[in-house]
Every structure is written in C-alpha cells, then in structure tokens.
Simulated scan of single mutants.
Amino acid sequence: MKLRKVSAASAAVLALALTATACGGDDKDSGSSGDGKKITIGIKFDQPGLGQKTPDGYAGFDVDVATYVAKKLGYTEDQIEWKESKSADRETMLQRGDVDFIAATYSITPERQEKVDFAGPYLLAHQDVLIRADDDKIKSPEDLNAAKLCSVTGSTSAQNVKDKLAPKAQLQPYPTYSACLPGLQNGAIDALTTDDSILAGYAAQSQFKGKFKLGGFKLTNENYGIGVKKGSDLKDKINKALEEMVSDKSWDKAVEDNFGPANYKNEPAPKIGDIKS
C-alpha cells in the first residue's frame, strides 16, 4: 500500500514537471516579443561613442539605438543581455543564434547580405581623417601625401587612402585606434583614418576634448545597419522601431549625447532601405 502511494506521488510530480516544461520553455526568447525573460544584443565593447563597456555599464550611440529598439520590442533595460560582437565574428554569431540582433558599426554590404539580413540603415557614416585641432596643413585628401598616417593592424582604411588618394602618405603601424591618439596628439603621426563616427567617438572622450577635429572629407559611404539572422521576422519590427526613433527625436538626442563634443557633422537620419553606394 505504501509503495502505491509513493508511485502515485511520483507520477504527480512527473506530470507537474512536464507541464512546467511545456509552458515555460527556454528562458531565452527569440526576440520577437517581450514574453521572454531576456533579449541578447551584440555590440562593440571597445568603441567610445558607439559601443563601449564601462565600469558603469554600456554606453554609445549603438547602445542607445539598440536599447530603444529593445524597448519597442517589449523589453526593459534589465532584460537586455549585451554580448561583445567583434567584426570578424558578427555573421557567425547571428547564424548560430548567439544573439538576437547586432548593432555594432555594422556596414551593410552585398557580401554580408548574402549571409544575414539587415534592418536600417540607422546611420550614414563616411571614412574620414582625424587631425589635431590646430592643424592647418591637411585641408584635402591630397594633403595626406606629405603626412604620417596611422595604419592600424587588421584595418584597410589607411591602405585604401595610400592606394587611391595619397600614394606618398607614410603609413605608421599601430596596434589599435586608441593607440594612435597619443601619437596624433604629440605629433608622431599627422592623421588617423577610419569611419567618421568612430573618430568622433574617440575625439569626444573627456581627455581629448578640443584636441582633435575631423577633416570632413567623406571618402566613402558606410551604411550602418542592425544585423539579424537570415529570414528573421525581427527585421520588419526593428525597422518600425527605427522609424519611431527618428520621428520622436530620440535619434537626434542620441547623436548629440554621443558625438556632440567632437563637433561631428552627421548626416540626417537615413530612410529605411536607402543604402548609399
């Protein structure tokens, strides 16, 4: 008799466990609604002004855009899990489902569109140069012919300038963009080149305010989009959120908050699907 009672109790426990599993599922939601407990978003952790991990949390324009989008999808800030998305890892992270979407200075290109889908664009950036605030010699890309140009390992920006615009530029190798800034400040190099939004983010740091300026050369168009897994229904939902961010002026505030100190002359908010070549 006692054995039968134990068996009945065990059966009841098993039934409850199966019910909970069927109703609860995985903690991680697909990102298509706010019913899940969290949403995982990929950002850069090392780009001031765009995506940076700080002692106080995460900050930057990409972070502000991603947070706004997440809220429109039904998530609160404490339901967001931030994950570092290095440039070389972004497509793989989306394809594996490591993140729900990525906002990480992610330029929309035909090659990338074969692997992932993009919402946006949400920012039109350009390759530019950062020079000292008192520099009066570099006024055009051609003036870089007589300049020492920071070349960052793994980046093609400086090499592109040398190949296409200023063949006599002297490329000076540095490990990171951050490492270029002291050299630019003390005259070891004359210019640093990458996307103007990234340069503005570096220049806006408190220790560099007023020391640098952008050349304003607009050497290329870089259409930043939000990457999602191929075929994801998130694309349309994120596009709608981005349109709302522009219409309610939250986009303008995010630009001013993150790039204002560098006097960044940003382009107007791009229209969804309008990719500048």
Rank of each mutant, 00 (worst) to 15 (best):
A11W: 07
A12E: 12
L14K: 02
L14T: 15
L14R: 12
C23A: 14
C23Y: 04
D27E: 15
D29F: 11
S30Y: 09
S33P: 02
G34M: 10
T40S: 09
I41L: 07
G42R: 04
I43F: 12
K44H: 15
D46N: 10
L50I: 07
G51L: 03
K53Q: 14
T54L: 09
G57Y: 08
G57Q: 11
Y58R: 06
A59Q: 14
D62R: 00
D62C: 11
V65M: 09
V65F: 05
T67L: 02
L73M: 10
G74F: 02
Y75C: 07
Q79W: 14
I80L: 11
W82N: 08
W82K: 03
W82S: 12
E84N: 14
S85T: 00
K86H: 12
L94C: 04
Q95T: 12
D98Q: 15
D100L: 09
I102A: 07
A103Y: 14
S107C: 11
T109S: 15
T109V: 09
P110A: 13
E111G: 14
Q113G: 14
F118E: 12
A119H: 05
P121G: 04
P121A: 14
P121M: 07
Y122L: 08
L124S: 11
H126C: 06
Q127F: 04
Q127N: 14
I131Q: 04
A133D: 09
D134T: 07
D136F: 02
K137A: 05
I138T: 01
K139W: 13
S140G: 03
P141L: 10
E142D: 06
E142L: 03
L144T: 00
L144P: 02
N145E: 04
A146V: 08
A146L: 11
S151A: 05
V152S: 10
S157M: 03
A158Y: 01
L165S: 03
A166G: 07
P167D: 07
P175C: 02
Y177N: 05
S178F: 03
C180K: 00
P182Y: 13
Q185K: 00
N186A: 13
A191S: 08
T193I: 05
T193K: 05
T194L: 00
T194A: 00
D196P: 06
L199E: 00
A200S: 09
G201W: 03
Y202H: 01
A204L: 00
S206P: 05
Q207T: 06
Q207S: 04
F212Y: 11
F212C: 01
F217H: 01
F217A: 13
K218M: 02
T220N: 10
E222C: 06
N223H: 13
Y224P: 03
Y224T: 03
I226R: 02
G227H: 04
V228A: 08
K230Q: 15
G231K: 10
S232C: 13
S232N: 08
S232K: 09
L234P: 02
K235S: 13
I238L: 08
N239V: 08
K240C: 07
L242P: 05
V246C: 04
S247K: 13
S247M: 06
S247C: 09
D248K: 03
F259N: 01
F259W: 01
G260A: 07
A262M: 03
N263G: 10
Y264D: 02
N266Y: 05
E267I: 03
A269W: 07
P270S: 08
D274A: 12
